[in-house]
Design a protein around this nucleic acid. Structure first.
Length: 350
DNA sequence: AACGCGTGGTT
DNA sequence: TAACCAAGCGT
């Protein structure tokens, strides 16, 4: 292992690199500003961290601007109806994040006077905030010396040490290795620096080792097998499920209903569908009508299965049975409609 | 502890 | 094209 002196040099090399980058993300405080006492806004940082969980920065960033504009404070977010929050989250995926975001905002606004807790331990008690997010907020906003480990850090550390154990089993071990070099003098900058390193230099496919501040200490670079790490457990093939979606139109409006509040796409609106099964279920339309089927099924890939929906469309006069409501086609952007069902509507020309 | 949970971009 | 990937969390 490294001597204390080496560890100090490793930290310093990363922070020198980071300071030189000048990479700015909109919710960040630049190192020079931080040195002058500028404090990151916990609300804005929390919002960004929840949105960026398993989400790329280009995809998440427009949502961050929109939410800050619509809900400039945690109180404003807490006061909004959940359905509005889900509407504005639509398209970002992992909708439990939006439900937890709203729940967390209510807790902070009503039980904590609008102030986020300043310690990792207290942050961990809030809905939607796990180890990574708690560590990050505590470090970036409150200068707490935490050990920030996300997917980027796992890749960087597993390469430096050529960790042979595959993820996700190796998470605890990698985290213990990361803790050895985590910086306690500039916790926020260090955490962002090591994540940036993974995101821009120590990339999954083609790492830019010539530009890496840690190349002197990287075992994988020395061995020439950087991209062999992190080792990952083989993933199983995902099943394909089939079903039918039934688009009912009346006077330029579409019939939508609300999904159950938990589980897949929980709380979001949907076009009525059949059950989703391993083989195409027998077709039982929700109303007797003259249905036309779209030429090609809609394909949609979830995390744990692929869905193929045959899309049927019809015009009806009355109301369908069951819960739901008519939504004018021009007003579809004002409802909590996930991408899957936007695709379904697009497939029949809406 | 392993699995459920979205979506869009890249290779 | 199929596989892989992205600043994880809850149960």
């Amino acid at each position: 292992m490294w001597t204390e002196q080496q560890i100090i040099e490793i930290r310093a090399a990363l922070l020198r690199w980071y300071d030189r980058q000048g990479r700015t993300l909109p919710w960040r405080v630049r190192p020079e500003d931080r040195a002058n006492g500028v404090i990151a806004d916990p609300y804005a940082v929390w919002l960004s961290e929840i949105m960026l969980q398993q989400t790329t920065i280009p995809h998440g960033t427009p949502y961050w601007y929109k939410f800050l504009d619509l809900y400039p404070s945690v109180e404003a977010l807490a006061a909004a109806p959940l359905d509005d929050v889900l509407t504005h989250w639509a398209g970002l995926g992992y909708y439990a994040r939006a439900r937890n975001l709203h729940k967390c905002a209510i807790t902070v606004a009503t039980e904590r006077g609008g102030e986020f807790p300043r310690t990792k331990t207290e942050l961990l008690t809030l809905p939607g905030i796990g180890d990574y997010t708690a560590s990050t907020i505590a470090a970036i906003c409150f200068d707490q010396p935490t050990n920030i480990v996300d997917g980027n850090v796992e890749r960087v550390i597993s390469r430096m040490h050529r960790v042979e154990e595959p993820l996700p089993k190796a998470k605890a071990f990698i985290k213990s290795l990361a803790a050895v070099i985590a910086d306690s003098d500039r916790p926020g900058d260090y955490g962002q620096a090591v994540m940036d390193l993974g995101a821009t230099v120590c990339t999954p496919r083609s790492p830019l080792c010539d530009s890496c501040p840690w190349s002197d200490w990287c075992e994988a670079l020395e061995a020439g097998d950087q991209t062999a790490y992190p080792k990952k457990a083989p993933k199983k093939k995902q099943p394909i499920r089939f079903g039918g979606a039934y688009v009912m139109m009346r006077d330029g409006a579409v019939w939508l209903r609300r999904r159950p509040s938990e589980g897949l796409l929980g709380g979001m609106m949907e076009v009525p569908t059949s059950e989703w099964a391993d083989v195409m279920p027998s077709v039982v339309p929700p109303v007797e009508a003259d249905w036309s089927r779209s030429p090609a099924p809609v394909k949609h890939v979830f995390t744990h299965f692929e869905l193929r929906l045959d899309v049927y469309r019809t015009e009806i006069d009355g109301d369908p049975d069951g819960e739901g409501r008519w939504v004018a086609c021009e007003a579809l952007s004002t409802v909590a409609l996930p991408s899957l069902f936007k695709k379904v509507l697009r497939a029949v020309g809406i």
